[in-house]
Computed example of a mutant assay.
Amino acid sequence: MTREIQITFDCGDPAALAAFWAEALGYRLQAPPQGFESWEQALDAMGVPPERRNDASAVVDPEGSGPRLFFQRVLEGKQAKNRVHLDVRAAPGLAGDSRMAALEAEAERLVSRGAVRVQRHEPAPPLGAGHIVMTDPEGNEFCLD
């Protein structure tokens, strides 16, 4: 039996981090519940006070094939290196200089949206195709692969 998965991020600003990952992955913010035209309308109906309206956010793959990403507010900041991270496949099918150029272009795009570039790993055949280590705006590591 297969299962759907959701990837959950603990963070300080769920709305901002959800917006970053939607942009990074080509995802979209999850639509409000059925019967509501906006999240504000839904949260009003649910009685969620204004100070709690950024406690959670989610983004989804518009094609429905990728996992849902869920962002939940936590009080503590990031403490250590991630043990699990996302690999953003920014250069599928490319190799060598063209691959690294595509990764560099994506790194620049994401830096302009709040990511931080950490380290570039050059191609090391036969197994290492090259990648760039990044962090999202809250310091969560991910790789451009």
Rank of each mutant, 00 (worst) to 15 (best):
M1V: 12
T2I: 13
E4P: 11
I7G: 01
I7C: 12
T8I: 14
C11N: 11
G12K: 03
L17E: 03
A18V: 10
A18S: 13
W21A: 05
W21S: 02
W21T: 05
A24N: 00
L25R: 03
G26H: 01
Y27P: 09
R28F: 05
L29H: 15
Q30H: 07
A31I: 04
A31S: 07
P33N: 00
P33A: 02
G35F: 15
F36K: 12
Q41A: 15
L43V: 09
D44K: 01
M46R: 07
G47Y: 15
V48Q: 00
P49G: 09
P50K: 03
P50N: 02
E51F: 10
N54M: 06
N54R: 03
N54Q: 09
D55M: 15
V59N: 02
V60P: 06
V60T: 10
V60A: 06
D61T: 11
D61W: 15
P62L: 05
P62G: 03
P62V: 08
G64R: 10
G64H: 12
R68A: 10
R68N: 08
V74N: 04
L75M: 15
E76F: 14
G77L: 07
A80S: 14
A80D: 11
K81N: 08
K81S: 07
K81H: 06
N82T: 07
R83N: 04
V84C: 09
H85D: 15
L86V: 04
L86G: 02
D87C: 06
V88L: 12
A90E: 01
A90R: 00
A91M: 02
A91S: 11
A91I: 04
G93M: 11
L94V: 04
A95T: 14
D97Y: 00
D97N: 04
D97C: 02
R99I: 13
A101Q: 15
A102Q: 07
E104P: 01
E106K: 15
E108Y: 06
R109F: 12
R109M: 11
L110D: 03
R113Q: 13
V118W: 05
R120H: 11
H121I: 08
P123N: 03
A124D: 14
L127E: 14
L127R: 11
G128T: 05
A129S: 06
I132Y: 12
I132R: 06
I132G: 10
I132K: 07
M134D: 08
M134I: 07
T135R: 10
P137M: 14
G139T: 10
G139C: 08
N140I: 10
N140V: 13
N140M: 12
F142D: 03
F142V: 03
F142H: 00
C143I: 02
C143P: 00
